[in-house]
Protein backbone atom coordinates (compact mmCIF):
# COMPACT_ATOMS: atom_id res chain seq x y z
CA UNK A 1 0.00 0.00 0.00
CA UNK A 2 2.71 2.40 0.93
CA UNK A 3 5.61 3.27 -1.25
CA UNK A 4 8.77 4.01 0.63
CA UNK A 5 12.42 4.10 -0.12
CA UNK A 6 14.02 1.50 1.94
CA UNK A 7 17.63 2.19 2.75
CA UNK A 8 17.96 -1.60 2.72
CA UNK A 9 17.68 -1.47 -1.04
CA UNK A 10 20.55 0.97 -1.01
CA UNK A 11 22.64 -1.27 1.18
CA UNK A 12 21.95 -4.36 -0.91
CA UNK A 13 22.68 -2.67 -4.20
CA UNK A 14 26.12 -3.46 -5.63
CA UNK A 15 28.29 -0.78 -4.15
CA UNK A 16 29.96 0.58 -7.25
CA UNK A 17 28.89 3.52 -9.25
CA UNK A 18 30.75 3.88 -12.51
CA UNK A 19 29.78 7.53 -12.77
CA UNK A 20 31.27 8.16 -9.37
CA UNK A 21 34.53 6.40 -10.32
CA UNK A 22 34.78 8.19 -13.68
CA UNK A 23 34.11 11.52 -12.02
CA UNK A 24 36.69 10.90 -9.32
CA UNK A 25 39.31 9.98 -11.94
CA UNK A 26 38.69 13.13 -14.00
CA UNK A 27 38.52 15.53 -11.06
CA UNK A 28 41.38 13.66 -9.39
CA UNK A 29 43.68 14.25 -12.37
CA UNK A 30 43.16 18.01 -12.16
CA UNK A 31 43.52 17.91 -8.39
CA UNK A 32 46.79 16.06 -8.83
CA UNK A 33 48.07 18.74 -11.22
CA UNK A 34 47.06 21.34 -8.65
CA UNK A 35 48.80 19.51 -5.81
CA UNK A 36 52.02 19.00 -7.78
CA UNK A 37 52.03 22.70 -8.69
CA UNK A 38 52.41 23.50 -5.01
CA UNK A 39 55.80 21.80 -4.81
CA UNK A 40 57.10 21.69 -8.37
CA UNK A 41 56.59 23.63 -11.58
CA UNK A 42 58.48 23.08 -14.88
CA UNK A 43 59.31 26.81 -15.06
CA UNK A 44 58.84 29.83 -12.81
CA UNK A 45 55.62 31.72 -13.42
CA UNK A 46 57.50 34.79 -14.75
CA UNK A 47 60.13 32.87 -16.72
CA UNK A 48 59.96 34.30 -20.24
CA UNK A 49 63.03 32.48 -21.51
CA UNK A 50 61.20 30.34 -24.05
CA UNK A 51 60.53 31.59 -27.58
CA UNK A 52 57.23 33.33 -28.22
CA UNK A 53 54.25 31.30 -29.28
CA UNK A 54 56.21 28.13 -29.92
CA UNK A 55 54.13 25.07 -30.54
CA UNK A 56 54.22 22.00 -28.25
CA UNK A 57 57.74 20.62 -27.94
CA UNK A 58 59.81 18.49 -25.59
CA UNK A 59 60.98 21.37 -23.38
CA UNK A 60 57.60 23.13 -23.47
CA UNK A 61 54.92 20.40 -23.47
CA UNK A 62 52.14 22.77 -24.48
CA UNK A 63 54.31 25.45 -26.06
CA UNK A 64 54.65 29.05 -24.89
CA UNK A 65 52.49 32.16 -24.85
CA UNK A 66 53.10 35.49 -26.59
CA UNK A 67 55.50 36.57 -23.82
CA UNK A 68 57.46 33.32 -23.97
CA UNK A 69 56.09 31.81 -20.75
CA UNK A 70 55.55 28.07 -20.48
CA UNK A 71 51.88 27.15 -21.06
CA UNK A 72 52.08 23.87 -19.14
CA UNK A 73 53.29 25.76 -16.09
CA UNK A 74 50.37 28.15 -16.46
CA UNK A 75 47.93 25.28 -16.87
CA UNK A 76 49.22 23.76 -13.63
CA UNK A 77 48.89 26.96 -11.60
CA UNK A 78 45.51 27.41 -13.25
CA UNK A 79 44.45 24.00 -11.94
CA UNK A 80 45.46 25.04 -8.45
CA UNK A 81 43.54 28.28 -8.67
CA UNK A 82 40.48 26.49 -10.09
CA UNK A 83 40.43 23.92 -7.30
CA UNK A 84 40.98 26.60 -4.67
CA UNK A 85 38.20 28.70 -6.15
CA UNK A 86 35.82 25.73 -6.17
CA UNK A 87 36.59 24.62 -2.64
CA UNK A 88 36.64 28.16 -1.23
CA UNK A 89 33.35 29.16 -2.82
CA UNK A 90 31.62 25.97 -1.73
CA UNK A 91 32.89 26.45 1.83
CA UNK A 92 31.58 30.02 1.93
CA UNK A 93 28.30 28.94 0.30
CA UNK A 94 27.87 26.00 2.69
CA UNK A 95 28.70 27.96 5.84
CA UNK A 96 26.39 30.87 5.07
CA UNK A 97 23.80 28.86 3.15
CA UNK A 98 23.25 26.13 5.74
CA UNK A 99 23.06 28.64 8.60
CA UNK A 100 20.60 30.90 6.79
CA UNK A 101 18.63 27.94 5.45
CA UNK A 102 18.16 26.33 8.86
CA UNK A 103 17.29 29.68 10.44
CA UNK A 104 14.72 30.53 7.79
CA UNK A 105 13.17 27.07 8.05
CA UNK A 106 12.47 27.78 11.71
CA UNK A 107 11.58 31.45 11.24
CA UNK A 108 7.98 32.52 11.42
CA UNK A 109 6.07 35.72 10.71
CA UNK A 110 8.06 38.82 9.79
CA UNK A 111 11.44 37.13 10.22
CA UNK A 112 10.43 34.46 7.73
CA UNK A 113 9.29 37.13 5.25
CA UNK A 114 12.48 39.17 5.71
CA UNK A 115 14.79 36.19 5.25
CA UNK A 116 12.88 35.01 2.17
CA UNK A 117 13.06 38.49 0.62
CA UNK A 118 16.78 38.72 1.40
CA UNK A 119 17.46 35.35 -0.25
CA UNK A 120 15.38 36.29 -3.29
CA UNK A 121 17.37 39.50 -3.76
CA UNK A 122 20.65 37.67 -3.32
CA UNK A 123 19.66 35.08 -5.90
CA UNK A 124 18.57 37.73 -8.40
CA UNK A 125 21.70 39.87 -7.82
CA UNK A 126 24.19 39.31 -10.70
CA UNK A 127 27.35 37.55 -9.51
CA UNK A 128 29.37 39.78 -11.82
CA UNK A 129 28.10 42.97 -10.18
CA UNK A 130 28.67 41.47 -6.74
CA UNK A 131 32.22 40.59 -7.73
CA UNK A 132 32.87 44.09 -9.05
CA UNK A 133 31.60 45.59 -5.81
CA UNK A 134 33.78 43.32 -3.72
CA UNK A 135 36.82 43.94 -5.92
CA UNK A 136 36.17 47.68 -5.64
CA UNK A 137 35.97 47.41 -1.87
CA UNK A 138 39.00 45.14 -1.53
CA UNK A 139 41.19 44.34 -4.53
CA UNK A 140 41.26 41.95 -7.46
CA UNK A 141 42.41 38.78 -5.75
CA UNK A 142 41.36 35.17 -5.77
CA UNK A 143 39.84 35.78 -2.32
CA UNK A 144 37.57 38.50 -3.65
CA UNK A 145 36.37 36.27 -6.47
CA UNK A 146 35.76 33.37 -4.08
CA UNK A 147 33.85 35.62 -1.70
CA UNK A 148 31.65 36.93 -4.50
CA UNK A 149 30.93 33.49 -5.92
CA UNK A 150 30.39 31.93 -2.49
CA UNK A 151 27.98 34.68 -1.44
CA UNK A 152 25.96 34.33 -4.62
CA UNK A 153 25.82 30.55 -4.22
CA UNK A 154 24.94 30.72 -0.53
CA UNK A 155 21.51 32.04 -1.46
CA UNK A 156 20.87 29.01 -3.65
CA UNK A 157 22.12 26.67 -0.94
CA UNK A 158 20.06 28.46 1.71
CA UNK A 159 16.87 28.07 -0.31
CA UNK A 160 17.52 24.37 -0.82
CA UNK A 161 18.38 23.82 2.84
CA UNK A 162 15.24 25.67 3.89
CA UNK A 163 13.04 23.32 1.85
CA UNK A 164 14.90 20.20 2.98
CA UNK A 165 14.76 21.20 6.65
CA UNK A 166 11.05 21.99 6.44
CA UNK A 167 10.44 18.56 4.95
CA UNK A 168 12.35 16.84 7.75
CA UNK A 169 10.65 18.93 10.42
CA UNK A 170 7.27 17.65 9.23
CA UNK A 171 8.27 14.05 10.01
CA UNK A 172 6.93 12.29 13.07
CA UNK A 173 10.42 11.47 14.34
CA UNK A 174 10.95 15.16 14.99
CA UNK A 175 7.77 15.28 17.09
CA UNK A 176 8.95 12.12 18.81
CA UNK A 177 12.28 13.80 19.60
CA UNK A 178 10.44 16.81 21.02
CA UNK A 179 8.25 14.64 23.25
CA UNK A 180 11.42 12.82 24.30
CA UNK A 181 12.62 16.12 25.71
CA UNK A 182 15.32 16.72 23.10
CA UNK A 183 16.21 20.41 22.73
CA UNK A 184 15.94 22.17 19.37
CA UNK A 185 19.73 22.56 18.88
CA UNK A 186 20.16 18.83 19.50
CA UNK A 187 17.27 18.01 17.18
CA UNK A 188 18.94 20.04 14.41
CA UNK A 189 22.35 18.46 14.99
CA UNK A 190 21.13 14.94 15.63
CA UNK A 191 18.13 14.52 13.34
CA UNK A 192 17.80 17.34 10.82
CA UNK A 193 21.35 17.71 9.50
CA UNK A 194 22.04 13.95 9.12
CA UNK A 195 18.82 13.62 7.13
CA UNK A 196 19.42 16.52 4.74
CA UNK A 197 23.11 15.68 4.34
CA UNK A 198 22.96 13.39 1.25
CA UNK A 199 20.95 15.84 -0.85
CA UNK A 200 23.08 18.73 0.39
CA UNK A 201 26.36 17.03 -0.53
CA UNK A 202 25.17 16.34 -4.06
CA UNK A 203 24.13 19.96 -4.45
CA UNK A 204 27.43 21.26 -3.09
CA UNK A 205 29.31 19.12 -5.59
CA UNK A 206 27.30 20.73 -8.38
CA UNK A 207 28.00 24.17 -6.89
CA UNK A 208 31.71 23.35 -6.98
CA UNK A 209 31.57 22.93 -10.75
CA UNK A 210 29.60 26.14 -11.15
CA UNK A 211 32.10 28.00 -8.93
CA UNK A 212 35.02 26.86 -11.10
CA UNK A 213 33.24 28.16 -14.19
CA UNK A 214 32.35 31.42 -12.46
CA UNK A 215 35.93 31.98 -11.35
CA UNK A 216 37.18 31.40 -14.89
CA UNK A 217 34.64 33.95 -16.09
CA UNK A 218 35.68 36.52 -13.50
CA UNK A 219 39.40 36.16 -14.13
CA UNK A 220 38.76 36.35 -17.90
CA UNK A 221 37.37 39.79 -17.09
CA UNK A 222 40.33 40.59 -14.88
CA UNK A 223 38.40 40.24 -11.62
CA UNK A 224 40.22 37.15 -10.41
CA UNK A 225 43.70 36.21 -9.23
CA UNK A 226 46.26 38.85 -10.31
CA UNK A 227 49.36 38.06 -12.45
CA UNK A 228 51.83 36.46 -12.47
CA UNK A 229 49.66 33.56 -11.21
CA UNK A 230 47.91 32.31 -14.31
CA UNK A 231 44.33 31.23 -13.96
CA UNK A 232 42.49 29.42 -16.74
CA UNK A 233 40.21 32.36 -17.35
CA UNK A 234 43.09 34.75 -17.88
CA UNK A 235 44.96 32.24 -20.05
CA UNK A 236 41.88 32.10 -22.28
CA UNK A 237 41.69 35.87 -22.42
CA UNK A 238 45.39 36.27 -23.28
CA UNK A 239 45.29 33.56 -25.93
CA UNK A 240 42.19 34.96 -27.58
CA UNK A 241 43.99 37.31 -30.00
CA UNK A 242 46.37 34.63 -31.27
CA UNK A 243 43.88 31.74 -31.28
CA UNK A 244 44.07 31.06 -35.03
CA UNK A 245 47.90 30.98 -35.15
CA UNK A 246 48.61 29.38 -31.74
CA UNK A 247 45.50 27.54 -30.52
CA UNK A 248 47.27 25.65 -27.74
CA UNK A 249 47.13 28.66 -25.38
CA UNK A 250 43.32 28.64 -25.45
CA UNK A 251 42.72 24.95 -25.94
CA UNK A 252 44.73 23.84 -22.89
CA UNK A 253 42.83 25.82 -20.24
CA UNK A 254 39.55 25.28 -22.10
CA UNK A 255 39.90 21.51 -22.14
CA UNK A 256 41.08 21.36 -18.52
CA UNK A 257 38.10 23.49 -17.46
CA UNK A 258 35.69 21.22 -19.29
CA UNK A 259 37.30 18.10 -17.81
CA UNK A 260 37.12 19.42 -14.25
CA UNK A 261 33.50 20.55 -14.54
CA UNK A 262 32.43 17.29 -16.17
CA UNK A 263 34.36 15.34 -13.52
CA UNK A 264 32.71 17.17 -10.65
CA UNK A 265 29.27 16.78 -12.19
CA UNK A 266 29.85 13.06 -12.61
CA UNK A 267 30.88 12.89 -8.94
CA UNK A 268 27.63 14.67 -8.03
CA UNK A 269 25.58 12.24 -10.14
CA UNK A 270 27.41 9.27 -8.66
CA UNK A 271 26.85 10.55 -5.13
CA UNK A 272 23.18 11.02 -5.90
CA UNK A 273 22.93 7.40 -6.96
CA UNK A 274 24.75 6.02 -3.94
CA UNK A 275 23.38 8.36 -1.27
CA UNK A 276 19.94 9.26 -2.51
CA UNK A 277 18.77 7.00 -5.31
CA UNK A 278 16.20 8.60 -7.56
CA UNK A 279 15.25 5.21 -8.90
CA UNK A 280 13.32 4.10 -5.89
CA UNK A 281 12.05 0.61 -5.55
CA UNK A 282 8.45 0.09 -4.68
CA UNK A 283 7.28 -2.01 -1.84
CA UNK A 284 4.59 -4.27 -3.27
Amino acid sequence: MKRRTSPADRANRPNRSYTLIAGCVLAGLIALLALVSLVWLPYAADDTSGGRLTGPAADHLLGTDKLGRDLFTQAMTGSRIAVEAGLGSVLVAAAIGVTLGVLSAFAQGWLDDTLSAFLDILIAFPTLLLAMLIVAARSATLGSAVLAIGLAQSAVVARLVRILVKRVLAQDYITAARTSGTSWPRIVAGHVLPNIWPTLVVNLALQFGLAVLAEAGLSYLGLGAPPPNASWGRMLQEAQATFTTAPAGALAPGILLVLLVIGVNLVADGLRDTLDPATRRRRA
Binding site: D172, Y173, H191
Partner: peptide, 14 residues
Protein backbone atom coordinates in the same frame (compact mmCIF):
# COMPACT_ATOMS: atom_id res chain seq x y z
CA UNK B 1 3.82 9.16 22.80
CA UNK B 2 3.43 6.59 20.01
CA UNK B 3 2.55 7.75 16.52
CA UNK B 4 0.37 6.40 13.74
CA UNK B 5 2.91 5.96 10.97
CA UNK B 6 5.76 3.68 12.05
CA UNK B 7 7.66 4.69 8.91
CA UNK B 8 7.96 8.40 9.61
CA UNK B 9 8.22 8.16 13.38
CA UNK B 10 11.68 6.57 13.44
CA UNK B 11 14.71 8.54 12.20
CA UNK B 12 15.97 6.46 9.23
CA UNK B 13 19.59 7.43 9.88
CA UNK B 14 19.79 6.31 13.50
Amino acid sequence: CVFQDPYSSLDPRR
